[in-house]
Amino acid sequence: MKQTGDSRARRALRFIAPRLFQFVFVVWAAYTVTFLLLHLLPGDPLIAALSVKGGDATPTDPAELSELRARYGLDGSVWDQYVTNGLAALRGDLGVSIATGQNVGDMIARALPNTAIVAVLALLIGVVVSLLITYWAFVTRAGWLRNTLLQIPPLGVAIPAFFSGLVLVSIFAYGLGILPSSGTRNPLSPILPAITLAMPVGAIFFQVFSAAVLEARASSYVFTAIAKGVSLPTLFFRHVLRNALLPSITILGLLIGYLAGGTAVVESVFSRDGIGRLTVDAVLARDSNVVQGVVIVVAVVYSVVNLLVDFSYGLTDPRTRPAALRRRVQDARNQAVVER
């Protein structure tokens, strides 16, 4: 099993190259798919946006319209727009909002921190609570308790985020008055949105993780460990946890996507200025430039997370062989998709 330096470098390259390629591909393709959907679906994006913005005062003068088209990067053939906007995005220029006239990149940059803090907090709450409940289900001797605990995630998946958000607001903001109901200024403001978002996200993680734990629990190597005289907590943390986390972290990317989507609802409920609300407002204003910009940013974030997950997987699992790894990652993601 000894390797020369050369082959080690080549192995590393072999591991990294396809993932980098996939990264670039996903971002490019997300741009392309969005572009096609926005531009090939019936209706002129500019007219649609202007009519929302101006109502009856929509300019109809062709000269004025073509000037506006040039300003918003919507001039020329569809193919020209595709290439020009794509190249601009590559330079970091996401164009100008039709609705507000602001630079899309700036708008996103302003909204991103507000969303990020809620998303990270939600992910943390979701994962930690999942771990705790699963651990509890693992060590308990009562079968009914285990079954009840494992029934929690279907509940989490079925709760509409706008509903749980409103209930939380009624209780903690209006009822008890201990947490702010909306806005971003109060340092405690991310808490309720994060809890709201943590429910569905945590439920998805819980399903994959608890399934992996139960599978590990029934596996032969856990039996071997029990026959060795290992205690339950040691069994969980030493033998089960790592094996169960491996398939679970592969869905982190998927969760990031879900978080990004979930913020659209949650930020509207809590009136927070973030990516989600930005997107909703952009769609309401039919502002295709902002929508396009948001999709590119989300695709980049998603790809970065997946890249990190793949690398960490490669580092933690000694069995890492590209083919087998890809298959396992794929399987885990498939399962997560099914259970969402």
């Binding site: 591909f25 997300a30 798919v33 926005l38 531009h39 659209a264 997107t279 999709v295 998603y302």
Partner: peptide, 24 residues
């Protein structure tokens, strides 16, 4: 499947929003 990868990479609610943005 690569195309599907991309479609899955975009959060489904965002994808729905894009379609709604396009269709009305």
């Amino acid at each position: 499947m690569r195309i599907v990868d991309v479609v899955i990479a975009v959060p489904s609610i965002l994808l729905s929003l894009i379609v709604v943005a396009g269709l009305g």
